[in-house]
């Protein structure tokens, strides 16, 4: 093995049209964090999806190497743990929450590359090489039961499920059909009483507020293309306007951040 093994473009998943069960597939929790490729060969690198070394960003992970036995390249999700679950917003604001690397694939181990081995074989080697410890946690999936796992994941408020064909090879940098994600998004009903012109001036932005507390704004989302203000703005130049009759919207989002804002919010449906 060369001294520098080099960053491998991570393999990517498509979003499944619908969750499914298949005995030839492995289903795991989709953790809400940063994709992270762990390189341990005496020195530690934690590469982001784009190949930036994140090792310096998370001081509590800098001794991860001491928890690994031999040189490895592992595919993982770097999560910040807060209140019993991963919190993406804690990651983003570099909060002091403890971090873990949840490993789910093995690209190099036992002195050889494993990209051309089927997932089944890579997972077997991953389980031989890694035991869960205070830095690295081994992702444990279920075989065949994708739909039920998604239900359970949704129940727990987690992000979703990764479905992987057990025969699949590791194809660097590709978004492939042999890896699919099922998303379990948070959905909620909210109200829109204010709108503002979008930056481009072409459309409108909806100010989405909590249905229970209209003073609590969850975020601003682009209004559906088909929507037009019920009445022309009081002034042609007006940037914002109040709607006499609020719009009811169902939004879906990855999470509501501790500051009460939607992350990755989307309008699912709406009614006047």
């Amino acid at each position: 093995m060369t001294r520098e093994m080099g960053f491998v473009q991570p393999m990517l998943a498509i979003t499944a049209e619908a969750p499914f069960d298949d005995p030839d597939w492995q289903y795991e929790i989709k953790w809400d964090g940063y994709r992270c490729q762990i390189h341990w060969n005496g020195s530690l690198h934690l590469y982001s999806r784009q190949g930036h070394d994140m090792a310096g960003w998370f001081p509590d992970l800098k001794d991860t190497g001491t928890f690994l036995r031999s040189p490895v390249i592992l595919d993982a999700e770097l999560v910040a743990w807060e209140a019993g679950r991963p919190s993406f917003s804690a990651l983003q604001r570099r909060a002091a929450a403890p971090h873990r690397l949840i490993v789910f694939d093995c690209l190099y181990a036992q002195k050889r590359w494993l990209l051309h081995e089927p997932l089944r074989a890579r997972l077997a080697i991953l389980h031989e090489e890694i035991e869960s410890n205070e830095r690295v946690v081994l992702s444990e999936g279920v075989a065949g039961q994708g739909v039920r796992l998604l239900e359970a994941v949704r129940e727990k408020g987690l992000e979703g499920v990764m479905a992987k064909r057990l025969q699949s090879l590791y194809i660097p940098g590709q978004r492939v059909r042999t890896w699919q994600k099922f998303l379990a998004l948070t959905r909620l009903w909210a109200t829109v009483s204010y709108v503002s012109r979008s930056e481009t001036g072409a459309g409108w932005m909806w100010w989405v507020a909590s249905a229970e507390d209209p003073g609590h704004f969850l975020g601003r989302l682009p209004a559906p293309g088909s929507w037009q203000p019920p009445a022309p703005p009081p002034d042609a130049r007006a940037q914002t306007m109040h709607l006499a009759k609020p719009i009811h919207v169902e939004v879906s989002c990855r999470e509501i951040t501790p500051s009460g804002k939607m992350r990755h919010g989307r309008i699912r449906r709406w009614q006047i």
Partner: peptide
């Protein structure tokens, strides 16, 4: 935390 992750899984 590791225990919590494992127990959640």
């Amino acid at each position: 935390v590791t225990g919590e992750v494992l127990s959640l899984m």
